[in-house]
Design a binder for these strands. Structure first.
Length: 614
DNA sequence: GCAACGATAAACACTT
DNA sequence: AAAGTGTTTATCGTTG
């Protein structure tokens, strides 16, 4: 049912100008100064294309994550586990390619050429049925629609084996292959192709190949895949004399023949795209399964009184901790709120991992029906995630999944004296989030609006001007019936994370379906969950380590404006009820930030004396 | 259906 | 005068 509605929306939305404009307006939320980035000319929006590429690259990177995790479980996966630093660099690349960055990388003529090329490719995917003028706008939508219909119908209940069968079916779908002109579909020429190619490398059939240089093939520079193939003499889609493309298994005597086969049989067309989409779902399913199994392992170890966090070697490049559930365990190993080696921004953590790790945990917290509201009412395990993943947001043009209020609060609390001028808040936003380096008009207005609107923000005038402080009590007061997230925020997040090419309804449907899968009792606090982590909602609170650390162990979470020694305080009407709402748990929650206690963290935290955290 | 919330937009006043 | 700052109002979409 959800699939149907989602599909329907996908069909209809892009056919209207609203569909395009609404999409761009999201990424544009405040994107006026970058209007050249996302503006469309009435045809395929470059943003659409790039979002699609981002999504594909994201999927590819996620697949790598999965490979890392599953590779660990494999007895003979040492080479995978030892994949060194370049992984992070390589993973950063696809995720980080934003429209803006693409513009920076490419000169305007190059960008234009790329876009034209991609439009042509999209048109070709449609075969000859579409005309040039109308098809350009509908091509991606229809292409996505086809894939969405296939994948959405299947992903919910199919096991990988089923999906393998699906491969056969998809492969058998009459394609527009005959319409393809291989000369124009050189896989090595367009980023669209290359990203699809990267994502499509994911195959449940094949082992996790590592390239000779130790990098996973996913991270191979996509600019020239053919040259890569020629240089390395191997191909992740080629092994044992046959094509490893899902559902293909065509025999190829040598690499050259395989390349020829690959370019002819698996060029960018609707069929390949659909297969790629399905493969994404395969990966997604596997990730979910991995998370479940990891959680199960955790439960088993817990039951056996083992401490997984202790033996877990952090210096291992990657291990099961790459699954969300164990990332949580990472943090559990450091309840003191100390820097977490594996997730620290200073470590070569891939931004992709950071991003999802941030988003996912809270998404599961708040979205999942199992997650109890009271657990995140005061507990803010997600708070520290910003600190942990700041590098991600610094570099990725992704809208932070936090409300303005929480961001502002975090910025202020992060300041040495816990007060900032408006301009300093601005600077913090731009410094911490690539997303806010553009769209200044809108979000600055929003910041001012939030500062004025919320009573938790107190304007204080001192000698050098007005500064803004946080009335923590008020902040806590305003949170009680925490919503699962701002719809607008979620929507923006989705678009900002490269899902903009998909209809929001489908995104929601996908999110829901996957989250349902993830929301098994053992999955409550897991932090992975694949791309749909991105669909996190309710990441309202960004209060972080900073506040506890800065508080020097003080148990007073609320710093009343008076504490700032200000000359004048403009109190917004309702006075704070400090005693009533001064909940040590708030501090505790932030101290324990990533404990991600299953369900009853609030109660447990309330019982914990602060000293235990020291 | 309603209230609450968050985002966004905009108008306006005031200050620098 | 222009820009920045701060306040306020309105609207929209979503959720509980």
């Amino acid at each position: 049912m959800m699939v149907e509605s989602a599909t329907e929306t996908i069909r209809t939305t892009p056919s209207t100008q609203n569909g395009v404009s609404s999409l761009s307006s999201q990424s544009d939320s405040g994107g006026r100064e970058g209007s050249s980035n996302g503006d469309t000319n009435g045809e395929i929006s470059p943003v659409d294309l790039l979002h699609l590429q981002q999504q594909q690259a994201l999927q590819a990177a996620r697949q790598f994550l999965l490979q890392q995790a599953t590779g660990l479980s494999s007895p003979s996966s040492n080479e995978v586990k030892q994949t060194p630093v370049p992984v992070s660099v390589a993973m950063m690349t696809p995720q980080m390619i934003t429209p803006q960055q693409m513009q920076q990388i490419l000169s305007p003529p190059q960008l234009q050429a790329l876009l034209q090329q991609q439009q042509a490719l999209m048109l070709q995917q449609l075969g000859s049925a579409q005309t040039q003028n109308t098809g350009s706008a509908h091509a991606p939508a229809i292409c996505v629609c086809v894939c969405v219909c296939v994948t959405a119908l299947l992903c919910a209940a199919m096991c990988p084996a089923d999906l393998q069968q699906l491969w056969k079916d998809v492969a058998g779908v009459p394609s527009a292959e005959e319409t393809l002109k291989h000369e124009g579909l050189d896989l090595s020429t367009t980023s669209s192709n290359s990203t699809s190619y990267s994502a499509s490398k994911v195959s449940p059939q094949i082992p996790h190949h590592s390239l000779p240089n130790g990098q996973n093939s996913v991270h191979t520079p996509k600019r020239d895949s053919s040259s890569h193939e020629e240089h390395t003499g191997s191909h992740p889609l080629y092994g044992h004399g046959e094509c490893k493309w899902p559902g293909c298994e065509a025999l190829c005597e040598d690499m050259g023949q395989f390349i020829k086969h690959l370019n002819s049989e698996h060029a960018l067309d609707d069929r390949s795209t659909a297969q790629c989409r399905v493969q994404m779902q395969v990966v997604q399913q596997l990730e979910i399964q991995l998370a479940k199994e990891s959680e199960r392992l955790q439960a088993m170890m817990t039951h056996l009184h083992m401490r997984p966090s202790e033996p877990k070697p952090f210096n291992q490049p990657l291990n099961l901790a790459s699954s969300a559930s164990l990332m949580k365990r990472d943090t559990e190993a450091y309840p003191e709120g100390l820097p977490h080696p594996p997730t620290s921004a200073a470590t070569p953590i891939t931004p992709l991992r950071q991003g999802p790790s941030v988003i996912s945990s809270s998404s599961l917290h708040s979205v999942g029906p199992i997650r109890r509201r009271n657990s995140d009412k005061y507990c803010t395990p997600i708070a520290s995630e910003l600190a942990q993943n700041c590098e991600f947001y610094k570099n990725a043009d992704v809208r932070p999944p936090f409300t303005y209020a929480s961001l502002i609060r975090h910025a202020i609390l992060e300041a040495p004296d816990r007060q900032l001028t408006l301009n300093e808040i601005y600077n913090w936003f731009t410094r911490m989030f690539a997303y806010f380096r553009r769209n200044t008009a809108t979000w600055k207005n929003a910041v001012r609006h939030n500062l004025s609107l919320h009573k938790c923000f107190v304007r204080v005038e001192n000698v050098k001007g007005a500064v803004w402080t946080v009335d923590e009590v008020e902040y806590q007061k305003r949170r009680p019936p925490k919503m699962t997230g701002s719809p607008t925020l979620v929507k923006n997040m989705i678009s900002g994370l490269g899902f903009g090419s998909l209809n929001a309804s489908y995104q929601a449907a996908l999110a829901e379906s996957s989250l349902n899968l993830l929301n098994s009792p053992t999955m409550v606090n897991t932090s992975s969950g694949g791309s749909l982590n991105m669909l996190h909602v309710g990441h309202d609170d960004v209060s972080s380590t900073v506040e506890q650390v800065n508080s020097n162990g003080s148990c007073s979470p609320g710093l009343s404006p008076q504490q700032y020694g200000s000359h004048q305080v403009h109190v917004k009407e309702e006075p704070a009820e400090m005693e009533e709402d001064s909940r040590p748990v708030s501090l505790m929650a932030t101290v324990s930030q990533n404990l991600a206690l299953p369900g009853d963290e609030r109660e447990m935290e309330e019982e914990l004396p602060a000293e235990e955290l020291e």
